[in-house]
Design a protein around this nucleic acid. Structure first.
Length: 421
DNA sequence: TCTGGGGTCCTAGGACCC
DNA sequence: TCTGGGGTCCTAGGACCC
């Protein structure tokens, strides 16, 4: 049996741990530049605030109802996530983290009859110890466990844990569960299935496997099997990433090449740091920048350069060099670049690097420099030492907006002292 | 005027091979 | 006018997830 542990309204819950005065009140967390709503408290949901809604369309409602808004604070959420995950990990033989706020835990070491109680206790302990509310769904497949966790969230009587164990329970749970809310059924599949008269998860589960395969192909068949209790979906062991991205939308569009270069250099270095942290190298990179897709009144450009590296690397210096060359090839004056990013691809472990006969770079020297820079940054703070192109090109320009950011309560020493006081 | 960021997997179709 | 058949590999784009 699986348990799917899912934190409730995770980002909002993280903020509330340090603002208990906001318990029971409408709270939302916003995306970059305070653009969209990406997490809502139950009270905010009850006001009809939809997921992903742009803030400027909600101004009046936010004002009238006194909704508290937070800019996103991913250092805080990441740290809170680690605390929750380490407790979950300690309570299972097999642990698979699925996202920042979700993990599957195997419950085979707990007798069937005690699993629900075991999860209730886990929910209570995490709430007490870390401050984050969560729900656990228990079932024989991951998709059913997901559904059970939704019921655990909805009905207080479950005390945070809901189990789908018997066939009777399974049918009952599926019969009132909308097909579009099933894990793996997105917008397109939902429309397709609904047009065929399939409204609930049970409607779909009662079809033949051939039907599932023909209409929704391989992923659809897997979902069908999971709804019928078979354990077939693998979420992977989160070993190392196959791609690493850093991208940002700018508060105001950028036209200046020097400023765009500085941003791309920063994105590139950010990606490369993650690459080194997972002990990998990459041999391909994509650099892109484009205009706002919401504006029909200006000339659109979608700049995208694929760079294939002669020798796989994780050096910030080398990657930034290639990225800036690529950017300069496609950059056009007068274009309003609203978003840009860097993607690292073709990622491999750093212990299997192939030698290139014609490589002229002194890679030992590169590596010593990189190690020294990483050490300085880990000792004195993340941005203590940077590459030239990362330095502020135009100091006055405000590239990002975050008007409602909470302090780094758990990861910044000054904040930690303040909180303790 | 203002509209997020970071991932994975699958499939169709093109290039290339014999 | 008529123009094979069967593979593999790679890539772009779609769909989905949080």
């Amino acid at each position: 049996m699986y348990g799917l542990a899912d934190c409730n309204n995770f980002f909002v819950s993280c903020e509330r741990v340090f603002r208990p005065d906001l318990e029971g009140k409408p709270v939302v967390v916003l995306s970059g530049n305070d653009g969209c709503v990406i997490s809502r408290s139950n009270e905010a949901k009850a006001l009809g605030i939809p997921m992903g809604a742009p803030l400027y369309q909600l101004r009046e409602l936010v004002e009238r109802e006194g909704v508290t808004c937070f800019s996103s604070n991913f250092s805080l959420y990441g740290d809170m996530s680690n605390r929750v995950m380490s407790i979950l990990r300690a309570h299972t033989m097999r642990f698979e983290q699925y996202s920042i706020d979700e993990a599957f835990i195997r419950l085979d070491h707990v007798p069937n009859a005690e699993q629900k109680k075991y999860c209730e206790d886990l929910v209570r302990d995490i709430r007490k110890g870390v401050g984050i509310p969560l729900s656990i769904g228990i079932a024989s497949s991951k998709t059913l466990a997901k559904i059970a966790s939704k019921y655990a969230k909805t009905y207080k009587g479950y005390r945070g844990a809901c189990a789908i164990r018997t066939d009777e329970q399974r049918r009952r749970a599926l019969s009132t569960f909308k097909i579009g809310d099933v894990w793996g059924i997105g917008r397109h599949s939902r429309a397709k299935l609904e047009s065929m008269g399939i409204e609930t998860a049970l409607d779909f589960a009662l079809k033949t496997p051939d039907f599932a395969q023909n209409v929704l192909h391989k992923p659809g068949l897997l979902t069908w099997q999971e709804l019928n209790g078979l354990d077939v979906v693998d979420v992977g062991e989160m070993s190392g990433k196959q791609s690493i991205t850093t991208s940002r939308t700018f508060a105001t569009a950028i036209t200046d090449l020097a400023l765009l270069e500085q941003q791309i250099a920063d994105f590139c270095d950010h990606c490369a740091r993650q690459l080194r942290a997972q002990h990998s190298l990459c041999s391909q990179m994509i650099v892109y920048a484009h205009t706002s897709r919401f504006r029909q009144d200006i000339e659109q450009q979608y700049l995208s350069e694929v760079v294939t590296l002669p020798v796989a690397t994780a050096s910030s210096q080398e990657l930034v060099n290639y990225a800036l060359q690529a950017l300069r090839r496609s950059y056009r004056q007068g274009i309003l670049y609203k978003k840009a990013g860097v993607i690292l691809l073709k990622i491999m472990p750093d212990n299997v690097q192939a030698q290139d006969l014609f490589d002229t770079r002194d890679r030992e020297k590169d590596k010593r420099l990189q190690v020294a820079m990483d050490k300085i940054n880990s000792l004195y703070g993340k941005r203590s030492i940077l590459l030239g192109p990362q330095l502020d090109a135009t100091k006055d320009e405000k590239v990002y907006i975050a008007e409602h950011k909470s302090p780094l309560y758990t990861t910044d020493w000054d904040s930690i002292i303040t909180v303790k006081c």
